[in-house]
Design a binder for these strands. Structure first.
Length: 426
DNA sequence: TCTGGGGTCCTAGGACCC
DNA sequence: TCTGGGGTCCTAGGACCC
């Protein structure tokens, strides 16, 4: 549902250090202080305030490697609070929607707006108005980049992030040569380490050189994806706005274990829990899945350990969103791939061939209580929604959760261990 | 000791068919 | 020298994104 309009102008609005900014909204004493927010399992740093970046902390780095620095500078450390971030994101998006009839929510903290037909206005001034309004209404600071294509808007956004104004307009082609020649390859949206290495071997070192390289060369080394990107850098739009919600193609639920696990009973509990979560996601979106992949693996970081990775596929002939049926097949798949004698690190499920439940084919072989199961699932979901997650659940998910992530087990220790790190001056 | 989780898209190559 | 070739479907793996 992406259509490309002539004379398009895109604005990319991106929240600054989004998770950190969310924490600040509810705790203003954190303003101007270094903050990091950790990944799901308190493993890596996934959001850093600019003060934290200035101290040398790196996005995506394992937090345990930086304990000293964190302690030394009293950096505030938070586990992720996705409920909070999702809520604030919705408020930001709601405000953005008022500034353009066409908008694509690209991620939890980014949206593209179409500014087509506004080129007679001062786009920088319009961007500034958007930025000020979002901040005033939500307390979340954003940066805005403007350009003729999504890739150029992304690039402009990167520049905006470094400037006090927080808005950068790259819609005038006369400044492209200068801007793009100072733009590193890996800073281009869609180019990461691997592609940058290939380009450098060809003597291409920045965005301008990529833009001006021969089409056939780029097609050969970066496939059609790279060729499109090249056109986008030239101001020829290849990507339109995705209006409306995109249909999901798969739903994943997986987690690393809090510690290495060998016992199949514990892994079965984790699989049952992942299936439960994935099935809830399906039903929330009115979808059914036609197959499920169960996977299990050891810790690839422990190179000396014997490694094992495997997956099993199970199919639901007419699609399913019924938790009990899916748990049964999930555990069946796990038993097929489980091997004794390994120390496992992670397990999960992937639901695929997802389609709207409305289109579900019924068959002669459906259990006679199929509709009752639908009712059961609906009831279960509404109880869990009303009284809290997992107020009602399946026994196979276990109650002790020995497999669960450290974040849960560690929460007590977290506050004690890191208390001094959180030292917030009031 | 400790290294996230959830997604998408593209390509190459094998299997299979006629 | 190699001798059919074109088409489809599926899967594994690479690469990227937030």
């Amino acid at each position: 549902m992406s259509s490309i309009q002539p004379n398009e102008v895109f604005a990319l609005v991106d929240c600054n250090s989004f998770y950190c900014s969310c924490e600040r909204v509810f705790n203003p004493t954190l303003k101007n202080k270094p903050i990091v927010v950790l990944s799901n399992n308190d493993g890596c740093m996934v959001s850093l305030s600019k003060e934290a970046k200035a101290l040398g902390l790196k996005m995506g780095a394992p937090v345990h490697e930086w304990k000293e620095l964190i302690k030394q500078h009293n950096i505030a450390v938070y586990s992720s609070n996705y409920t909070l971030y999702g809520d604030l994101s919705a408020r930001v998006m709601q405000i953005l929607r008022e500034f353009s009839p066409e908008m694509e929510i690209y991620s939890i903290d980014e949206a593209f707006l179409s500014l087509r037909g506004m080129s007679d206005r001062d786009l920088t001034a319009y961007g500034t108005l958007i930025r000020d309004t979002v901040y005033q209404c939500t307390g979340i600071p954003v940066s805005i980049g403007i350009g003729a294509t999504k890739v150029l808007a992304k690039a402009a956004n990167r520049i905006a992030k470094k400037q006090a104004l927080g808005v950068f307009d790259l819609s005038d082609p006369s400044i492209h040569d200068e801007v793009l020649s100072g733009f590193e390859l890996t800073d281009i949206w869609g180019i990461a380490r691997r592609s940058a290495e290939k380009l450098k071997r060809l003597g291409i070192h920045n965005a301008k050189e990529l833009r001006d390289a021969p089409d056939a060369t780029i097609r050969r080394v970066l496939t059609i994806v790279g060729r499109r990107l090249q056109d986008e850098l030239r101001g020829i739009p290849c990507m339109g706005l995705e209006l409306g919600a995109k249909e999901k193609k798969q739903i994943i639920s997986s987690r690393s274990f809090g510690k290495l696990i060998s016992e199949i009973e514990l892994i079965e509990e984790s699989i049952a829990s992942h299936v439960t979560r994935a099935a809830e996601k399906l039903r929330n979106q009115g979808l059914i899945a036609h197959h499920m992949i169960v996977f299990l693996h050891t810790n690839p970081f422990l190179e000396r350990d014997h490694q094992y990775y495997n997956q099993a596929v199970r199919t639901f002939m007419n699609g399913s969103d019924h938790t009990p049926e899916m748990i049964r097949l999930g555990i069946d798949g796990l038993r097929e791939i489980y091997r004794d004698g390994f120390k496992f690190k992670k397990a999960g499920v992937i639901l695929g061939e997802i389609r709207p439940k409305l289109h579900q084919q019924r068959s002669l072989f459906d259990p006679p209580n199929h509709n009752q199961l639908d009712v059961l699932m609906t009831t279960l979901d509404s109880m869990n929604r009303r009284f809290g997650t997992e107020i009602v659940k399946f026994a196979s998910c276990g109650t002790k959760k020995h497999w669960q992530m450290r974040a849960e087990l560690r929460s007590q220790r977290y506050t004690t261990n890191w208390d001094e790190l959180l030292d917030i001056e009031l």
